[in-house]
Design a binder for these strands. Sequence first.
DNA 1: CCCCATAGTTCAGAAATTCGGAACTAAGGG
DNA 2: CCCTTAGTTCCGAATTTCTGAACTATGGGG
Lengths: 115, 115
Amino acid sequence: MRPLFHPAIEDVRPEAILHALADPARAAIFASITQAGCVQACSAVSSLGDRVIPRSSLSSHFKVLREAGLIRSERHGVEMRNHSRCAEVEARFPGLLSAIMNAYAGAKACEATVP
Amino acid sequence: MRPLFHPAIEDVRPEAILHALADPARAAIFASITQAGCVQACSAVSSLGDRVIPRSSLSSHFKVLREAGLIRSERHGVEMRNHSRCAEVEARFPGLLSAIMNAYAGAKACEATVP
DNA sequence: CCCCATAGTTCAGAAATTCGGAACTAAGGG
DNA sequence: CCCTTAGTTCCGAATTTCTGAACTATGGGG
């Protein structure tokens, strides 16, 4: 099992962040990690809404988020702890993450009125 | 040639916008259209930096931007006029587009110092 | 120490996307 | 008409994503 790679904050690319968050599943995972005080086990998000996500897919979603520079993952015993890097990303790209998360929240609220 | 489809602003999805702008080429095209007073022919962006973009790829890039709700395209004689829908998108997802464009601008400025 | 359970990763083939060249359509001259 | 310009469509190749199955790693009994 190769060690986890985390890009330095100055190596983080906007296109990688956009690509990572362009998938609603990954955006939801990231939102969950960020809101839940920065720690969330991988298995804690095994399902998302009504959709069940296979473990291999979940693993690659976390990998995409990690390599985009959005989260930091560390093995802690048998489980993984994921921390949001939102403060770092905010410093490098001001307003980006909050605008994206607000956009998703807004769209969700909007479609909830007309299901 | 089927007529061009433009989503209503309330049907615009955040994931579509992020996906569209996650490609640096499309982001550059969108920035160009937005900055150039909202009108830009398709062929005006036939190359981007040092990279030459084939016309079929350019056409599909415009299609992605159009269907994401980022631009409005209308045939005008032999050429196409593309208008940025940034005002509409800004109203629906406040701060999103400016944060994204700033992120790209910031990353570009940063890498220009160490080429 | 060995075995089991849990948590996650890796691999490989299938499915879906994207890329790009060639042929095509549309509009405006001459 | 025919030519040129501007862009679209088609389709096969290349790339990426998805996911089930097998694998690795860690901790806890017995």
